[in-house]
Design a protein around this nucleic acid. Structure first.
Lengths: 101, 101
DNA sequence: GTAAGCTACTTACTTTTCGTAATCTATAAA
DNA sequence: TTTATAGATTACGAAAAGTAAGTAGCTTAC
């Protein structure tokens, strides 16, 4: 996607947070660290996309991945500081939705 | 897209505002009423998609379409109250972007 | 009177992303 | 050897986005 000349930052933010499922994944992780299956169950998202999104978010430094070498394997995801800083933003969207949808 | 059992409102809001280009179109319209070509020039969006998005936003009551039967024809788009109510939300995303991107 | 120009779309076509379901990896217990 | 579990990957058809050309209605220029 080309960048908006208007506001590159907002453009970049929307490219990231506005991507399908991303905001909902972050919203879910605001509850605390969670495993792959827990997130998958909480949202109507498929494993394929969840895996893809989590990788993107990890790459952006928004989500942290922690592997526990148990049997069976356990993997937890949690928000980094950068990820937590999105709480206000997500809440603001939520509030708007409560008032207007 | 299926609805999130977790938070249907946030889900609905993201479906709307999180759609590609939508937030940027609203951001642009916060400057005041604008014509089709003006929006198209301000953003790296194609006429095809801009037309599609404006229709969606009009249907959701976020944008108002006003036709002036001049020559050549003039069409202006502006935010409704519901649309204006998104200002805080968009600014919040912008602020986050300024701090973290 | 026909050709060209303006604005706001619309259509046809290609590329990218999404959604669903099946499959894979590693480990251990039955 | 088969089964089970968690996390992830792959294959493929469907949907959405991107690109570029075309349309409609009206005006002015030639």
């Amino acid at each position: 996607m080309k960048e908006s000349a208007l506001c590159p930052r907002l453009s970049k933010a929307m490219e990231l947070v506005g991507k399908r499922w991303t905001a909902l994944i972050i919203y879910q992780l605001l509850e605390g660290p969670q495993r792959f299956n827990a997130i998958e169950s909480a949202l109507p998202i498929s494993g394929r996309l969840l895996s893809e999104r989590l990788k993107e978010l990890e790459k952006e430094g928004i989500v942290e991945r922690k592997v526990f070498s148990e049997v069976p394997i356990r993997v937890e995801y949690n928000l980094t500081k950068k990820g937590q800083s999105l709480e206000q933003t997500v809440r603001e969207i939520e509030n708007w939705a409560k008032s207007w949808l």
